[in-house]
């Protein structure tokens, strides 16, 4: 239907060992369980889903921060899933991951200047004055004053730390950027500025984004397509407008029902999603959403539903989705 994908993920798995008190392995936590999707160049793919469903693990596994348990990640024609970080450094310079916790990605002992120079020192041969010029250019692009270069992370606010985190990965001019909740903790005004910045950088450098977010109103505004995850699986994927207009999977439906609407009925009075999320170390048989699904039937306990592309521009993994 379109050009060759820039990123193709096939049956990607990441299992973490689960240990008992004596550190013996007693099972596996399936943080990613056969995740497949493709990303077109220049596209913004939103990734949404319950907290703990594996979004950050997905980002980190694509980046090689975690080694995949199984599956393929095709990037620029090569499978990078099993490469160790040092083997794939050259490739992964073009694939960047922006951390969820801004505090965790900045070294508290380094000034902002040092933090921004570091990736350039590691990945490029630029000389100090060129690096400084690049750093200042990006700092201005993310809207921070140059006086901040001499400050330490604890001396700036949470939202400012986040902008530094963004500046840090943009200095490398990557082609695919995985943004892990890039606007959480930003006020609406700065958020608007940062989102506009993403869009203009995308245009300027032809970037492709994987946009992990809990903020569905933002996802709706800027993503071309959305993947909805639940417990290590993609349960629904498709064009943004279709997912929001006609969500097919019952989990997607409850997710959309839980968005607060200013001026409307309060979700805290009306919303309910039955039961606790099951433990990812002890998944239910069959469909992993069935323990909380209003439409679950006997079949759901027996058979794990596969993604069905039964709707134009939209696919869902549910036996009974219509």
């Amino acid at each position: 239907m379109s050009a060759a994908p820039i990123l193709e993920v096939r049956d990607l798995r990441k299992y973490f060992p689960v240990r008992n008190l004596w550190k013996r392995r007693i099972g596996w936590l399936r943080a990613l369980d056969d995740v497949s999707f493709t990303v077109q160049p220049g596209e913004i793919l939103g990734i949404v889903g319950e907290s703990g469903c594996g979004k950050s693990t997905l980002g980190k596994t694509l980046m090689g921060i975690h080694t995949a348990t199984a599956g393929e990640v095709m990037f620029q024609g090569q499978d990078i899933a099993r490469l160790r970080p040092h083997e794939s450094r050259g490739l992964r310079q073009h694939l960047q991951y922006c951390y969820q916790d801004p505090g965790a990605s900045l070294d508290p002992r380094w000034t902002i200047r040092a933090s921004l120079h570091e990736p350039l020192i590691v990945h490029t041969a630029l000389k100090e004055p060129e690096r400084e010029a690049r750093v200042r250019e990006i700092l201005a692009a993310v809207g921070l004053p140059e006086t901040h270069l001499d400050l330490y992370p604890h001396e700036i606010s949470g939202g400012q730390q986040r902008r530094v985190g963004l500046a840090r990965i943009l200095t490398l001019k990557p082609s695919v950027v995985i943004l892990d909740e890039p606007t959480s903790g930003l006020d609406v005004s700065v958020q608007a500025v940062i989102l506009k910045l993403f869009l203009s950088l995308q245009e300027q450098f032809g970037l492709t984004y994987l946009f992990v977010s809990h903020d569905l109103s933002v996802v709706r505004m800027i993503c071309d397509r959305v993947a909805v995850m639940y417990l290590g699986r993609v349960v629904e994927i498709g064009e943004t407008s279709r997912i929001f207009a006609t969500p097919r999977h019952p989990y997607t439906q409850s997710l959309l029902a839980a968005i607060p609407r200013i001026g409307g009925a309060r979700v805290t009075d009306t919303f309910s999603l039955e039961g606790e999320p099951p433990s990812p170390t002890n998944l239910p048989s069959g469909c992993r959403f069935r323990t909380r699904c209003p439409r679950a039937q006997a079949l759901c306990a027996q058979q794990d539903p596969a993604l069905r592309a039964d709707w134009p521009g939209q696919a869902a993994a549910c036996h009974f989705a219509e």
Binding site: S184, H214, L255, V267
Partner: peptide
């Protein structure tokens, strides 16, 4: 609730 999805956020707010 910044790092929470809307369904968990709704529970925490409740």
């Amino acid at each position: 609730t910044t790092a929470l999805d809307v369904t968990v956020q709704a529970q925490i707010l409740k």
